[in-house]
Nucleic acid binder design. Structure first.
Lengths: 345, 345
DNA sequence: CTGAAAGCGCTAACAA
DNA sequence: TTGTTAGCGCTTTCAG
């Protein structure tokens, strides 16, 4: 067990203050005799010393720890986000505590409480619903920064992507490339992000004179892989064929939809044109034409952290940031190249 | 700000103990008068109360928090692992603090210190090297459970997959399916996991009478996406064609390798036979024949947590678990089905 | 340059 | 059934 300041002090027969001073690199400043310093350093090298954050935090009422609450880490989008936010926090000297709600509202509330009880200095959360934890946080006076989903609560800092425009750009690109009919596989449309994406899609179609989009839109209850599976299974059952082009409202939905195709056909038919949100390197595994809308996580992190810092320093104003999205296109090339594969198989 | 026990007590003119008792649901036991209980509950309903874990932890010297240190969350394997471990910890009433090292040894040490300073009750870590943080942990007497990589340190609990056998099974399957030459793209072979995987591969080839495997093995310095890219780029430059069959030593390496193919050809040539470790749903995005070796994360988590609990309860013995792997095969079906796609494109 | 003391909010032990 | 107290390890303030 690493020693405490007091243990060191008594062991060396010096005062606590003196020990503290050199431990905190204030030896110079207070002109501690160099032999005293040496003794202390020696002792520490021998027995070790780690500050006890619990005690420190109790006294100072801060922990240098921030909390992040997301739906799930197995969603690669959130995993990436968590990673980037962690890096940013670390740069600023904060530890980030990451926790998942699994979209369970009750659990989300418990988590918020748990993190506040653990005295985090502030909280980033991807909320599951409107009311959610606001009262907890308000009561605790801890800074709160909402991410990803705009349920419209005022007076809270918020960072989201410009999903509507992003979706519109995606739809336009695919539409203009002649990919029709262009289906839209939507997860939970009660969720603001999805709702925005869908409305961007509908707006473009309407502008193109396609009014009856009903049969192009397929809805599921949630945003999970299973929901994507269900959507594609239903599609296959109804059409006895794969869609020539579709947009998935989120990565998990896409994963589910594609897994069904993979199972059904034994491969992912290369002629299918795929649109999706949440760019991820593994999308490159697909050989299809694929349009993906990237959320600029770096910008998110920057804005979110900035808002957090403001709040931590007692800055009053809550901030709202709407981050532009970028459209990426991976084109499938023609197959007729000579000698693609080495040797015979 | 939620009140403290003392504030509640003074506000209500009761003793701290009494308040504590009802707050901890021991009212029955100590037969607190129901009117007192009512008063307290009312007050709490009104003003709220959250225990201060810092104070609690200072007194009890435990935090009900465990730490997890992994290389990176953007590695989907570790993200999945983190998620599962988090769930398990939560079931047992522990919060899990997840942190990433980005394979930086210095940072790994800092992190271990940081988490110990924050008084975690125990630590799970995917170590970057042999010596690493052992001394920190030893000195702190906190339980330690190592994951994923066996650097051979004795007297520490450890959970790893049976990489050698897993790799052998994979190699056999691909070999027996006639996929030759079968290249092996290896990340950092200094890392025990990769070393084991490679030796499993070599053993099978040797048993099949293929002695000169040199030209089939491609090595990189690390296990990152970039390394996979480099390997495949080099391969293409040397052979002017893609490999008919290859095994990637880990998911990031595969991601990199495939991204180069995708860029080079405009798609992932479907005739390539792919073997990889770290099964992940997104592998289904590929239309190729694909063999993947799954690590049984659920078993890992169970063993790791069990070892942790033992240690937390002062159980002396350190535990070593070697978890079997499972081989999965996704076969590519023939392309000649009628009417795969709906309508014309 | 060094020392002493109070107190952060909680728990456990003991008193009443 | 309820009240009192000591002390976890640290920081801050004031006194030498």
């Amino acid at each position: 067990m690493a020693k405490t300041v007091e243990q060191i002090a008594t062991a060396l027969n010096i005062s606590i203050t003196t020990v503290r001073l050199v431990l905190n690199n204030q030896a110079q400043q207070y002109r501690i005799s160099s032999k005293t310093q040496a003794r202390i350093n020696e002792y520490v090298a021998e027995h070790g010393y780690t500050v006890n954050h619990a005690a420190r935090s109790l006294k100072l009422n801060k922990t240098e720890t921030l909390g992040l609450i997301i739906p799930r880490l197995s969603n690669v989008f959130f995993a990436t986000l968590a990673e980037k936010l962690e890096i940013r926090c670390r740069e600023a000297g904060y530890q980030l505590m990451i926790s998942c709600t699994y979209s369970d509202l009750k659990y989300e509330n418990k988590l918020v409480e748990a993190l506040i009880a653990r005295n985090v200095d502030g909280l980033f959360v991807v909320p599951s619903s409107l009311q959610s934890q606001k009262h907890h946080v308000k009561r605790s006076t801890k800074p709160l920064v909402l991410l990803d989903r705009d349920f419209g609560s005022p007076d809270v800092s918020l960072v989201v992507s410009d999903n509507r425009r992003g979706s519109a750009a995606l739809t336009e690109a695919m539409f203009d490339a002649g990919k029709i009919p262009l289906f839209f596989m939507a997860g939970d449309i009660g969720q603001p992000t999805i709702k925005e994406r869908m409305s961007g899609y509908e707006a473009v179609l309407a502008a193109r004179g396609i009014t009856d989009t009903r049969q192009w839109i397929l809805e599921a209850a949630h945003n999970r892989r299973e929901d994507g599976e269900m959507l594609m299974r239903t599609f296959l059952a109804n059409h006895h064929a794969a869609p020539p082009a579709f947009i998935a409202s989120s990565l998990p939905v896409l994963e589910g939809a594609l897994s069904v195709l993979r199972t059904h056909f034994g491969f992912i038919p290369a002629e299918i044109n795929i649109g999706t949100f949440d760019e991820h390197p593994m999308l490159g595994f697909l050989s299809n034409n694929i349009w993906s809308v990237r959320q600029d996580e770096d910008a998110w992190v920057e804005m979110a952290f900035h808002a957090m810092q403001q709040a931590l320093q007692g800055g009053g104003e809550s901030q709202r940031a709407i981050i532009p999205m970028t459209l990426l296109y991976r084109q499938r090339a023609g197959q007729n190249r000579d000698q693609i594969i080495l040797g015979s198989i």
